[in-house]
Computed example of a mutant assay.
Amino acid sequence: MTGVVLHLDGVRKSYQTGTLHVDALRGIDLGIDEGDYVAIMGPSGSGKSTLMNILGCLDTPTSGTYRLVGVDVGELSENELAEVRNRLIGFVFQQFNLLAHLTALRNVELPLAYAGVPGDERRRRALAALGRVGLSDRVDHRPRELSGGQQQRVAIARALVTDPALILADEPTGNLDSRSTRDVLALLEELHDQGRTIVLITHEEEVARAAQRVVRIHDGELRVTAPAVRR
């Protein structure tokens, strides 16, 4: 696979809070190709979260360009950004972000509902996504009836259901015990082996080692890009 999924060129992000000026990102250059599995690491205040927000089209650069599958994100309207997030990016968050009153199946269907996919097709695709993460027997369970690891699997199924160009996982093991962490990382590795493009945001070295490549950010700058050493 040789297609470029995302490319950042000289991306900067600045904030003004009263008289305080903050340069959160200071000229980020980064390319990720189709089928890559990249971990982005950095301590608190490093710019890691700001970079994640840019990559996820939750925010736009102050300057520089960010292209996602060839689209210049900086030129999109808010509605267009929302469409890109729903269609091209599958999000997996630390807090799972599942709706408590909906079953696993309904939670996974949500991105398709927002995209206007008909009900029968939504159900078929959601069932297939839950099957891929090993939860075919939990489709009618609500989040409170699932373990933390199972909830994160539902979240991964939801991320997969739109067949996105990019899976963006923000601290996906942060609320999990060690066994569930291993299970989720194994699932992400399996998805990568199937050709998925994954960006994993983490502050944990052990988690980052699951990736193919580690990118480190410090004081808003990329400092080291190196192959990960998988155990």
Rank of each mutant, 00 (worst) to 15 (best):
H7C: 15
T17F: 09
G18D: 06
T19F: 13
G27S: 11
D29H: 13
L30I: 07
I32R: 01
D36M: 05
V38L: 07
I40Y: 00
G42L: 03
P43M: 07
S44K: 07
G45E: 08
S46Q: 07
K48A: 01
T50I: 15
T50P: 01
L51N: 13
G56S: 13
L58F: 15
Y66I: 00
Y66C: 00
R67L: 11
L68N: 04
V69Y: 08
V73G: 00
G74C: 00
G74M: 00
L76I: 01
S77G: 14
E78V: 15
R85W: 10
L88C: 11
F91Q: 07
Q94E: 04
L98G: 01
L102R: 10
T103A: 03
L105F: 05
N107E: 05
N107D: 06
P111E: 13
L112V: 14
A115P: 07
R122M: 09
R124M: 09
V133H: 02
V133N: 02
L135R: 00
S136A: 11
P143Y: 05
I156P: 00
A165T: 06
A165M: 09
A169S: 05
A169I: 01
P172V: 05
P172Y: 05
P172N: 07
G174E: 00
G174L: 02
N175Q: 10
L176T: 04
R179W: 09
A186L: 08
L188Y: 02
E189M: 12
E190P: 07
T197I: 10
T197P: 01
I198V: 12
V199M: 09
H203W: 08
E205N: 12
E206M: 12
A208D: 03
A210H: 15
R213N: 08
V214K: 13
D219Y: 14
E221R: 13
R223F: 03
R223D: 05
R231N: 11
R231K: 10
R231W: 08
